[in-house]
């Protein structure tokens, strides 16, 4: 791990805290670092890891939340992946299922491709977008205490949640989960009682 140049949160610590005592949480990971972070926090048969389909994580979460209202669904993704599917926040805001949370790990960079500055560095306020789209519950975290509050909100939803965690741009070693998409999909379905 490189030395952070600021006092922002470490992404791996933040995700470990988000998934502490996760119970039956179903997690949809966004492409790239968010998938490595969730894998690093511990493999789980309720994790859907993404190796492609950038921009689709939030909508996958919505589909799962609508199909299974009794399950608690959390999307964990990065700022670049969320920005590619920003319209999804408008679509999610219309229906805003209470069993869906979207957590964005925001390092304000495209981390997988050379740390180029993203729109969140250059002006876009993701929480402002989420509020403007009608998502009823919006949280931000820049301390581990605030991450813990988001973690608790995942399990006691006060309506559909959008949360942004301000993370450092420090890079970690990649932790690579299963790469076979059919296996990843079938494992989640089996964990949810489907064949």
């Amino acid at each position: 791990m490189t030395t952070p140049r600021d006092n922002l949160l470490d992404r791996r610590r933040a995700v470990v805290e988000l998934l502490r005592e996760r119970s039956d949480l179903v997690v949809v990971c966004g492409l790239g670092s968010a998938t490595w972070d969730v894998a690093a926090a511990g493999d789980h048969d309720r994790n859907f890891y993404s190796w492609g389909a950038m921009g689709g994580a939030a909508m996958m979460g919505l589909g799962l939340a609508l199909a299974r209202p009794e399950e608690t669904v959390t999307v964990i993704t990065g700022d670049g992946e969320m920005l590619m599917g920003l319209g999804a926040l408008a679509t999610i805001g219309v229906r805003a299922p209470g069993n869906l949370s979207i957590v964005v790990l925001d390092n304000r960079r495209f981390g997988e491709t050379g740390m180029q500055e993203s729109h969140t560095r250059l002006g876009t306020d993701l929480c402002g977008v989420a509020r403007a789209c009608g998502i009823p519950h919006v949280l931000e975290a820049s301390s581990m205490e605030e991450v813990a509050a988001i973690r608790d909100a995942l399990h006691r939803p006060e309506g559909c949640l959008f949360a942004r965690i301000a993370i450092s741009a420090a890079e970690h070693e990649r932790v690579l989960p299963e790469r076979d998409g059919a296996k990843i999909k079938d494992r989640v379905r089996a964990a949810l009682g489907l064949s």
Binding site: G55, G56, M59, M60, G63, L66, G87
Partner: peptide, 24 residues
């Protein structure tokens, strides 16, 4: 029926995958 209006069609592709993960 859940009727979901989209901002762009690719949202509906990802939505369908998520639904299938949950058996929908």
């Amino acid at each position: 029926m859940e009727a979901v209006v989209l901002t762009t069609e690719e949202e509906g592709v990802a939505l369908a995958y998520g639904a299938w993960l949950g058996g929908g």
